[in-house]
């Protein structure tokens, strides 16, 4: 790996996660309401995808080098491949080792910290999603920042970087439910870790940015076809982590209670109908027919 630490160059990392596809129709539940992981397809998490879009923005606008990383089972390389399509990553890093299993957010942050430190570059900016859809805590990002000693900005909806002064300007959205929403503009020096708000929108307003985006998008698709040549899989030994701080051993979290997974917000409501109940069937027939005939 080349050492590219010159002024004005941004090296970015984006942390992504393989998550169950919780979109309607793709998810499978156990009878007790918990997730049936073996039956549910895994994809790049939607919040991770947003982080990737932000990383692409850095690539398009600031010519950043981007490394995508993930901790997970070997199948998580699919998440990295998907991430590559979005952010045109230059390298993919998968931290995969049996010993990482059972990690809570703190232990995950420890692993990712070591991964990022071993990317072979001085990383200036790390992107993380808002939270995982199967974890919900939203702690991994901030904890990684804390472990790395980076500044942290959460709920980012827009950002820009001043390459000369090496400062990042971010606009963050702070929702105070029932009160109001605050939009904050904050500034902090690099290195930093930013967690993207779900409402993050990349906004390419310059012709040169649009052109570069189109070019990188094409490049990304090309790279993803051959993603394995960009991929490096790291074991705990490779990373040189202290086993006391990772995996189950390094996880202080005690799972107090597991809530049933809130079902995906469906665009339609479902009701189970007994096929032998003519009354109920008639009701449905009427409903659909009214829609079909436009007699709402």
């Amino acid at each position: 790996m080349d050492d590219d630490d010159g002024e004005g160059v941004i090296n970015a990392a984006v942390m992504v996660k393989l998550e169950p596809d919780l979109s309607e129709g793709n998810v499978s539940y156990n009878p007790d309401g918990t997730l049936n992981r073996s039956q549910t397809k895994n994809i790049l998490g939607p919040h991770s995808a947003i982080a990737c879009r932000a990383a692409m923005y850095a690539k398009v606008c600031y010519d950043a080098w981007v490394g995508a990383c993930s901790m997970g089972p070997p199948t998580a390389e699919i998440a990295l491949k998907d991430a590559m399509v979005i952010c045109c990553a230059d390298e993919l890093h998968l931290y995969s080792d049996r010993i990482f299993a059972g990690a809570d957010t703190l232990a995950t942050a420890e692993t990712i910290k070591h991964g990022i430190m071993k990317m072979g570059r001085r990383i200036d900016l790390v992107f993380s999603g808002h939270r995982a859809v199967d974890g919900e805590t939203g702690q991994t990002g901030p904890q990684t920042a804390w472990k790395l000693g980076f500044n942290f900005i959460g709920n980012v909806i827009e950002y820009s970087i001043d390459l000369r002064s090496r400062m990042i300007n971010a606009r963050r959205k702070v929702d105070l439910p029932g009160l109001y929403t605050i939009i904050e503009d904050v500034e902090c020096p690099l290195p930093a870790l930013i967690a993207l708000d779900p409402s993050y929108r990349d906004n390419y307003r310059k012709v040169s940015e649009r052109l570069r985006y189109a070019r990188l998008e094409k490049e990304a698709r090309k790279r993803a076809e051959d993603y394995k040549s960009y991929l490096r899989i790291w074991s705990a030994k490779d990373l040189g982590v202290d086993v006391r701080y990772i995996g189950l051993a390094g996880s202080p979290t005690i799972v107090y209670k597991v809530e049933k997974i809130p079902k995906a917000k469906a665009s339609r409501r479902a009701k189970v109908v007994d096929p032998n109940n003519v009354e109920e069937l008639r009701e449905i027939g009427n409903l659909i027919l009214n829609i079909a005939l436009g007699e709402r």
Binding site: L281, R282, I284, G285, N286, I288, L289, A292
Partner: peptide, 10 residues
């Protein structure tokens, strides 16, 4: 026809 039947045909 009953509406269920109409729907099935459609």
């Amino acid at each position: 026809l009953p509406k269920e039947e109409q729907l099935r045909i459609r």
